[in-house]
Design a protein around this nucleic acid. Sequence first.
DNA 1: CTTTGTGCAAATTCTTTGCACCAAA
DNA 2: TTTGGTGCAAAGAATTTGCACAAAG
Lengths: 136, 136
Amino acid sequence: MTKQTHKYLTDNGIRPSIQRIAIMDYLLTRRNHPTADEVYCGLLSEIPTLSKTTVYNTMKLFVHHGVALQLDVDEKNARFDGIVDAHAHFYCKKCGCIHDLPLERNFLPSTMDFVIDEAHVTFKGLCANCKQRIAN
Amino acid sequence: MTKQTHKYLTDNGIRPSIQRIAIMDYLLTRRNHPTADEVYCGLLSEIPTLSKTTVYNTMKLFVHHGVALQLDVDEKNARFDGIVDAHAHFYCKKCGCIHDLPLERNFLPSTMDFVIDEAHVTFKGLCANCKQRIAN
DNA sequence: CTTTGTGCAAATTCTTTGCACCAAA
DNA sequence: TTTGGTGCAAAGAATTTGCACAAAG
């Protein structure tokens, strides 16, 4: 993974430091839309000197270079997504999990007064697990 | 306005205090998706003793009773919307303004593993004003 | 009289900033 | 040797909490 990620970052104009590669690998392998803190904690064993500042710096860099998205799914924390193709999200209000959903049709608005460069589609409710747990 | 708002709150199981009526009136007349601070500052002349805590308390109450929505449009602040019918939002990344957009229904995902009770659709980019200003 | 609402001050949490040190080109 | 990256400690900003007083039923 590391090898491909190195190339992926380089191809996108990002200098591949140990930290940046580890963070991008984290995003691409877990695909769990983590918070900055989750990335930080998840990589501490691998990079014990990692700081949260570096995670924040790196995420800002990634978003700026278009290799990550910042999601406003959860009102508390920023969450990050390494999958940058258009897709929707489902957010479980009970357990906080986030799932990817395909984005079916073209639902862009007909009004073209605006320059639209991002579309965020989020559904909120209960995931399958939480739904079942409540039914019992 | 106050009179109707009084009834609207009562009908939705919310005790209509001076503050709550003023806040709901603010949401319904401005329709500008304000932050808590904007509501607070906007009502200070009318209710000089108002506190931000009350604004936050009231918004939480409104959301809980389904008469307001909390938007995660802007990563910095929570924003509130007194229009609870399904509609999309456009957020200008330059000036921060938010516009309502109609939402053609029928974009819900086909997967029904989840219980969906909120759909958030946000477009981000440049509003007409900012677009023009940049073109010059 | 009892319950609910308000609002101050303090605490908490997430994120950013300033700065010194380290590493790579 | 110069530029860019990392990470600590402190600052900043939005929101929440604890609590006392006020208001309403």
